[in-house]
Amino acid sequence: MYAQMVKSTGQGVKPREDMSPEERHFQDRVDANEKIEPKDWMPDGYRKTLIRQIAQHAHSEVVGQLPEGNWITRAPTLERKAILLAKVQDEAGHGLYLYCAAETLGISRDELTEKLLDGSMKYSSIFNYPTLTWADIGAVGWLVDGAAIMNQVPLQRTSYGPYSRAMIRICKEESFHQRQGFDIMMKMAQGTEAQRRMAQDALNRFWYPSLMMFGPSDKDSVHSAQSMAWKIKINTNDELRQKFVDQTVPQAHYLGLTVPDDDLRFNDETGHWDFSEPDWSEFYEVLKGNGPCNEERMAARRKAWDDGAWVREGLMAHAGKRSHRTAAE
């Protein structure tokens, strides 16, 4: 997941009788679960919304390396270090497939990177929270990847072919990520007093930010209605959030940890857990750039891009010289 508050056309779903013949044909294909491919005709709004959504996901994968990278050099065993490296490497790979998927819509990776760096495109709010103890690496896998999977599994069926195929690959790896996170939490929760304290503290700090990952309720949002009609969004934010809570609460109990919500109760009538909403004012502040780590995350990405300019230019220049030499031979 990692796509939050992606704006669509803002006009709601066009009634069928107002659609042009091309739009009607397009909608019929989407309704019939046909995949839309890069060379097919598509409404401008569909293309723009998808670019925003896929890019936000790609940017999240890239920025998401930072909070986990924060612990690679301090991982407590060689095996944990190797697993975390493999996971972060997967995430950079996910970023790469997603940028490739976005490029099929007619925008380059460099343009998207510039939009991230100038702040006109966003990444998921969750990566603006710090990872403070080793248990946070467990919590990121268990909760953050767990929440991401909730959205990504249905997106395997999304209408845009390259996006759907990227999601299928990504989901395979994400479920491994979530398991390794849960495994860290289990070791911590069954460990020493200090480890149990770290595990509970991590859950306390990551619970509400994880619920925010799904975005605010969008049952009345015109953006979401359009995205759902185009099948680039499959479920409402509330549906996914509920599913996440229902899955995660029993896992927390199994770990012997307390979810930091006094109003958490199993509702026999609905068969779901009732829970408290996160503080949405905090969420909007984080999106505006006022989260605990927004400054650091963006500064790190800008520095990587700026410091890397000579490397990218050097390698391009060499490739140019080499093809020139080959042509001259």
């Binding site: 890239v62 920025v63 390396q65 930072l66 986990e68 990278g69 690679i72 490296l85 972060v88 490497q89 950079a92 790979g93 970023g95 790469l96 940028y99 990776r109 790190a300 520095k303 990587a304 891009w305 410091d307 890397g308 300019a309 490397v311 990218r312």
Partner: peptide, 11 residues
């Protein structure tokens, strides 16, 4: 990790 000049290098 996360600081390389280009995404392929991060990987």
């Amino acid at each position: 990790c996360g600081h390389a000049p280009v995404l392929e290098e991060d990987i």
